[in-house]
Protein backbone atom coordinates (compact mmCIF):
# COMPACT_ATOMS: atom_id res chain seq x y z
CA UNK A 1 0.00 0.00 0.00
CA UNK A 2 1.35 3.39 -0.99
CA UNK A 3 0.54 6.90 0.18
CA UNK A 4 -1.50 7.53 -2.98
CA UNK A 5 -3.63 4.41 -2.39
CA UNK A 6 -4.64 5.69 1.04
CA UNK A 7 -6.37 8.71 -0.47
CA UNK A 8 -9.33 6.48 -1.29
CA UNK A 9 -9.69 5.02 2.18
CA UNK A 10 -10.43 7.63 4.83
CA UNK A 11 -10.79 5.34 7.85
CA UNK A 12 -7.54 3.49 7.10
CA UNK A 13 -5.75 6.77 6.64
CA UNK A 14 -7.08 8.10 9.94
CA UNK A 15 -5.99 4.90 11.72
CA UNK A 16 -2.53 5.06 10.14
CA UNK A 17 -2.11 8.70 11.12
CA UNK A 18 -3.04 7.83 14.69
CA UNK A 19 -0.48 4.99 14.70
CA UNK A 20 2.26 7.27 13.39
CA UNK A 21 1.52 9.86 16.06
CA UNK A 22 1.81 7.16 18.72
CA UNK A 23 5.11 5.94 17.31
CA UNK A 24 6.54 9.41 16.80
CA UNK A 25 5.43 10.80 20.15
CA UNK A 26 6.77 7.79 22.09
CA UNK A 27 10.09 8.24 20.29
CA UNK A 28 10.30 11.98 20.90
CA UNK A 29 9.41 11.87 24.57
CA UNK A 30 11.66 8.95 25.50
CA UNK A 31 14.46 10.61 23.51
CA UNK A 32 13.87 13.84 25.42
CA UNK A 33 13.80 12.00 28.76
CA UNK A 34 16.96 10.04 28.05
CA UNK A 35 18.79 13.17 26.91
CA UNK A 36 18.12 14.68 30.36
CA UNK A 37 21.11 12.57 31.46
CA UNK A 38 23.51 13.97 28.87
CA UNK A 39 26.48 15.40 30.75
CA UNK A 40 25.41 14.16 34.18
CA UNK A 41 25.20 10.37 33.83
CA UNK A 42 26.44 8.02 36.56
CA UNK A 43 29.60 7.12 34.64
CA UNK A 44 31.01 8.61 31.47
CA UNK A 45 30.34 5.44 29.45
CA UNK A 46 26.64 5.41 30.37
CA UNK A 47 26.37 9.16 29.87
CA UNK A 48 27.51 8.52 26.31
CA UNK A 49 25.24 5.47 25.85
CA UNK A 50 22.11 7.32 26.97
CA UNK A 51 22.94 10.32 24.76
CA UNK A 52 23.40 8.01 21.83
CA UNK A 53 20.07 6.25 22.37
CA UNK A 54 18.39 9.63 22.92
CA UNK A 55 19.64 10.83 19.54
CA UNK A 56 18.46 7.67 17.84
CA UNK A 57 14.98 8.11 19.28
CA UNK A 58 14.75 11.83 18.44
CA UNK A 59 15.85 10.84 14.94
CA UNK A 60 13.12 8.18 14.85
CA UNK A 61 10.54 10.78 15.91
CA UNK A 62 11.68 12.95 13.02
CA UNK A 63 11.28 9.99 10.65
CA UNK A 64 7.74 9.16 11.84
CA UNK A 65 6.74 12.84 11.72
CA UNK A 66 8.11 13.01 8.20
CA UNK A 67 5.79 10.14 7.22
CA UNK A 68 2.93 12.10 8.81
CA UNK A 69 3.88 15.20 6.85
CA UNK A 70 3.73 13.13 3.66
CA UNK A 71 0.17 12.23 4.64
CA UNK A 72 -0.80 15.90 4.87
CA UNK A 73 -0.03 16.63 8.52
CA UNK A 74 2.11 19.69 9.47
CA UNK A 75 5.90 19.66 9.11
CA UNK A 76 7.88 17.67 11.71
CA UNK A 77 8.95 20.66 13.84
CA UNK A 78 5.41 22.01 14.02
CA UNK A 79 4.21 18.54 15.02
CA UNK A 80 6.83 18.32 17.79
CA UNK A 81 6.77 21.91 18.98
CA UNK A 82 3.34 23.23 18.07
CA UNK A 83 1.02 20.82 19.93
CA UNK A 84 -0.28 20.89 23.49
CA UNK A 85 -0.32 17.74 25.67
CA UNK A 86 -3.93 16.85 24.78
CA UNK A 87 -2.85 16.27 21.19
CA UNK A 88 0.07 14.00 22.06
CA UNK A 89 -0.46 10.23 21.77
CA UNK A 90 2.51 8.92 23.76
CA UNK A 91 2.14 6.34 26.53
CA UNK A 92 2.69 7.16 30.20
CA UNK A 93 5.91 5.09 30.45
CA UNK A 94 7.91 7.58 28.36
CA UNK A 95 6.34 10.54 30.13
CA UNK A 96 7.20 9.59 33.71
CA UNK A 97 9.84 11.53 35.55
CA UNK A 98 12.66 9.71 37.32
CA UNK A 99 12.46 11.15 40.78
CA UNK A 100 11.05 8.12 42.55
CA UNK A 101 10.34 9.24 46.11
CA UNK A 102 12.49 12.35 45.90
CA UNK A 103 9.79 14.60 44.48
CA UNK A 104 9.06 16.55 47.63
CA UNK A 105 12.13 18.72 48.10
CA UNK A 106 13.17 20.76 45.08
CA UNK A 107 16.94 21.30 45.04
CA UNK A 108 18.75 24.62 45.03
CA UNK A 109 19.07 26.19 41.59
CA UNK A 110 22.12 24.79 39.81
CA UNK A 111 21.29 26.05 36.32
CA UNK A 112 18.58 27.84 34.34
CA UNK A 113 16.68 24.57 33.98
CA UNK A 114 14.81 23.40 37.13
CA UNK A 115 13.93 19.99 35.62
CA UNK A 116 17.57 19.34 34.87
CA UNK A 117 18.49 20.44 38.39
CA UNK A 118 16.09 17.87 39.77
CA UNK A 119 17.63 15.17 37.59
CA UNK A 120 21.04 16.12 39.02
CA UNK A 121 19.83 16.20 42.61
CA UNK A 122 17.14 13.51 42.70
CA UNK A 123 17.15 11.58 39.44
CA UNK A 124 17.17 7.80 39.86
CA UNK A 125 19.13 6.33 36.99
CA UNK A 126 17.72 2.87 37.80
CA UNK A 127 14.31 4.15 36.68
CA UNK A 128 15.80 5.36 33.40
CA UNK A 129 17.60 2.07 32.80
CA UNK A 130 14.55 -0.12 33.49
CA UNK A 131 12.39 2.16 31.38
CA UNK A 132 14.94 1.94 28.58
CA UNK A 133 14.80 -1.86 28.89
CA UNK A 134 10.99 -2.10 28.81
CA UNK A 135 10.71 0.45 26.02
CA UNK A 136 13.47 -0.86 23.75
CA UNK A 137 12.18 -4.41 23.95
CA UNK A 138 8.73 -3.17 22.94
CA UNK A 139 10.30 -1.03 20.22
CA UNK A 140 12.09 -4.07 18.81
CA UNK A 141 8.91 -6.17 18.87
CA UNK A 142 6.97 -3.39 17.16
CA UNK A 143 9.54 -2.76 14.45
CA UNK A 144 9.86 -6.46 13.72
CA UNK A 145 6.08 -6.55 13.20
CA UNK A 146 5.99 -3.33 11.18
CA UNK A 147 8.60 -4.64 8.77
CA UNK A 148 5.69 -6.66 7.37
CA UNK A 149 3.38 -3.63 7.24
CA UNK A 150 1.22 -3.29 4.19
CA UNK A 151 1.98 0.44 4.25
CA UNK A 152 5.28 0.39 2.40
CA UNK A 153 6.83 3.62 3.68
CA UNK A 154 6.33 2.36 7.24
CA UNK A 155 7.69 -1.12 6.47
CA UNK A 156 10.73 0.46 4.86
CA UNK A 157 11.31 2.73 7.86
CA UNK A 158 10.84 -0.13 10.36
CA UNK A 159 13.57 -2.11 8.59
CA UNK A 160 15.89 0.86 8.87
CA UNK A 161 15.18 1.62 12.54
CA UNK A 162 15.43 -1.98 13.66
CA UNK A 163 19.19 -1.94 13.10
CA UNK A 164 19.57 0.89 15.62
CA UNK A 165 17.09 -0.49 18.14
CA UNK A 166 19.09 -3.71 18.24
CA UNK A 167 21.80 -1.80 20.12
CA UNK A 168 19.27 -0.34 22.55
CA UNK A 169 18.04 -3.79 23.54
CA UNK A 170 21.63 -5.05 23.67
CA UNK A 171 22.52 -2.21 26.04
CA UNK A 172 19.87 -3.15 28.59
CA UNK A 173 20.31 -6.88 28.08
CA UNK A 174 24.01 -6.48 28.90
CA UNK A 175 23.62 -4.18 31.88
CA UNK A 176 20.56 -5.51 33.69
CA UNK A 177 21.89 -9.03 34.41
CA UNK A 178 25.16 -7.48 35.63
CA UNK A 179 23.63 -4.78 37.82
CA UNK A 180 20.60 -6.74 39.00
CA UNK A 181 22.72 -9.26 40.81
CA UNK A 182 25.80 -7.20 41.70
CA UNK A 183 25.01 -5.51 45.03
CA UNK A 184 22.02 -5.35 47.34
CA UNK A 185 21.63 -1.66 46.50
CA UNK A 186 21.67 -2.18 42.74
CA UNK A 187 19.19 -5.07 43.03
CA UNK A 188 16.84 -3.05 45.26
CA UNK A 189 16.94 0.01 43.04
CA UNK A 190 16.25 -1.96 39.88
CA UNK A 191 13.54 -4.06 41.52
CA UNK A 192 11.78 -0.93 42.83
CA UNK A 193 12.02 0.64 39.41
CA UNK A 194 10.67 -2.50 37.70
CA UNK A 195 7.74 -2.69 40.12
CA UNK A 196 6.87 0.99 39.70
CA UNK A 197 7.25 1.01 35.92
CA UNK A 198 5.64 -2.27 34.94
CA UNK A 199 2.00 -1.03 34.96
CA UNK A 200 3.10 1.88 32.76
CA UNK A 201 5.02 -0.49 30.52
CA UNK A 202 1.85 -2.52 30.00
CA UNK A 203 0.24 0.78 29.01
CA UNK A 204 2.53 0.92 25.96
CA UNK A 205 0.09 -1.57 24.46
CA UNK A 206 -3.10 0.31 25.20
CA UNK A 207 -5.71 -0.92 22.70
CA UNK A 208 -7.08 1.80 20.45
CA UNK A 209 -10.29 2.01 18.41
CA UNK A 210 -8.07 1.85 15.31
CA UNK A 211 -6.53 -1.55 16.12
CA UNK A 212 -9.03 -3.56 14.05
CA UNK A 213 -8.74 -1.24 11.05
CA UNK A 214 -4.95 -1.39 11.13
CA UNK A 215 -4.91 -5.18 11.56
CA UNK A 216 -7.49 -5.72 8.79
CA UNK A 217 -5.49 -3.55 6.41
CA UNK A 218 -2.31 -5.43 7.31
CA UNK A 219 -0.66 -2.21 8.52
CA UNK A 220 0.04 -3.24 12.12
CA UNK A 221 -0.91 -6.10 14.45
CA UNK A 222 -3.38 -5.42 17.27
CA UNK A 223 -1.82 -4.14 20.49
CA UNK A 224 -2.62 -7.16 22.75
CA UNK A 225 -0.77 -9.41 20.31
CA UNK A 226 2.33 -7.19 20.52
CA UNK A 227 2.04 -7.15 24.31
CA UNK A 228 2.17 -10.95 24.40
CA UNK A 229 5.28 -11.01 22.24
CA UNK A 230 6.91 -8.35 24.43
CA UNK A 231 6.20 -10.27 27.62
CA UNK A 232 7.75 -13.40 26.14
CA UNK A 233 10.90 -11.38 25.31
CA UNK A 234 11.36 -9.69 28.66
CA UNK A 235 10.54 -12.56 31.03
CA UNK A 236 13.87 -14.42 30.68
CA UNK A 237 15.88 -11.19 30.96
CA UNK A 238 14.03 -10.24 34.13
CA UNK A 239 14.67 -13.69 35.55
CA UNK A 240 18.33 -13.66 34.62
CA UNK A 241 18.67 -10.28 36.29
CA UNK A 242 17.03 -11.48 39.50
CA UNK A 243 14.08 -9.15 38.94
CA UNK A 244 10.50 -10.16 39.61
CA UNK A 245 7.29 -8.81 38.13
CA UNK A 246 4.99 -7.09 40.59
CA UNK A 247 1.87 -9.12 41.37
CA UNK A 248 -1.53 -8.08 39.96
CA UNK A 249 -0.45 -5.21 37.74
CA UNK A 250 -3.16 -3.39 35.91
CA UNK A 251 -2.00 -1.34 32.96
CA UNK A 252 -1.96 2.45 33.06
CA UNK A 253 -3.91 3.59 30.00
CA UNK A 254 -4.92 6.98 28.70
CA UNK A 255 -1.93 8.24 26.74
CA UNK A 256 -3.19 6.94 23.41
CA UNK A 257 -6.32 9.06 23.75
CA UNK A 258 -4.59 12.17 25.02
CA UNK A 259 -5.21 11.64 28.74
CA UNK A 260 -1.75 12.13 30.19
CA UNK A 261 0.10 12.35 33.46
CA UNK A 262 0.84 15.94 34.56
CA UNK A 263 4.52 15.22 33.77
CA UNK A 264 3.82 15.53 30.04
CA UNK A 265 2.94 19.20 30.49
CA UNK A 266 6.27 19.69 32.23
CA UNK A 267 8.13 17.89 29.44
CA UNK A 268 6.43 19.97 26.75
CA UNK A 269 7.03 23.22 28.64
CA UNK A 270 10.74 22.39 28.59
CA UNK A 271 10.74 21.05 25.03
CA UNK A 272 8.87 24.01 23.57
CA UNK A 273 10.31 26.77 25.77
CA UNK A 274 12.55 28.46 23.21
CA UNK A 275 10.32 27.63 20.22
CA UNK A 276 7.40 29.41 21.90
CA UNK A 277 9.40 32.66 22.09
CA UNK A 278 8.72 32.98 18.37
CA UNK A 279 7.07 30.01 16.62
CA UNK A 280 7.61 31.61 13.21
CA UNK A 281 11.36 32.02 13.67
CA UNK A 282 13.95 29.74 12.11
CA UNK A 283 16.24 28.75 14.95
Amino acid sequence: MTTAALAHNASTKTALIDLLYRLGDDSLIIGHRNSEWTGIGPILEEDIAFSSMAQDKIGHALAFYTLLHELGEPDPDTIAYGRGPERFRCCSLVTLDIFGDGKSAPPAALSNNPVRDRVVAQGDWAISLVRQFFFSEADAVRMAALEQSAYEPLAHLARKLRGEIKYHTLHARTLLPRLGRATAESRDRLQSAAAALYPHALGMFEPTPHDATLADAGIAPAEPELCDRWQREIAPIMDGSGLVFPPRSSPVYGGRTGKHLPELTEVLDALQKVYRLDPTAIW
Binding site: H32, S35, G39, L44, I48, A61, Y65, W283
Partner: peptide, 24 residues
Protein backbone atom coordinates in the same frame (compact mmCIF):
# COMPACT_ATOMS: atom_id res chain seq x y z
CA UNK B 1 23.61 20.04 28.36
CA UNK B 2 21.17 22.16 30.35
CA UNK B 3 19.78 23.47 27.05
CA UNK B 4 19.26 20.14 25.25
CA UNK B 5 15.68 19.90 26.63
CA UNK B 6 14.98 23.42 25.29
CA UNK B 7 16.52 23.10 21.81
CA UNK B 8 13.96 24.75 19.50
CA UNK B 9 13.88 22.29 16.58
CA UNK B 10 14.38 18.57 16.12
CA UNK B 11 17.51 19.20 14.07
CA UNK B 12 19.01 21.46 16.76
CA UNK B 13 18.06 19.04 19.51
CA UNK B 14 19.79 16.18 17.72
CA UNK B 15 22.90 18.21 16.96
CA UNK B 16 23.20 19.64 20.47
CA UNK B 17 22.76 16.25 22.11
CA UNK B 18 25.40 14.81 19.76
CA UNK B 19 27.76 17.67 20.51
CA UNK B 20 27.48 17.38 24.28
CA UNK B 21 27.87 13.62 23.96
CA UNK B 22 31.10 14.26 22.06
CA UNK B 23 32.36 16.52 24.86
CA UNK B 24 31.72 13.78 27.43
Amino acid sequence: GTWIPHAPSLKRKLALCAKVQDEV
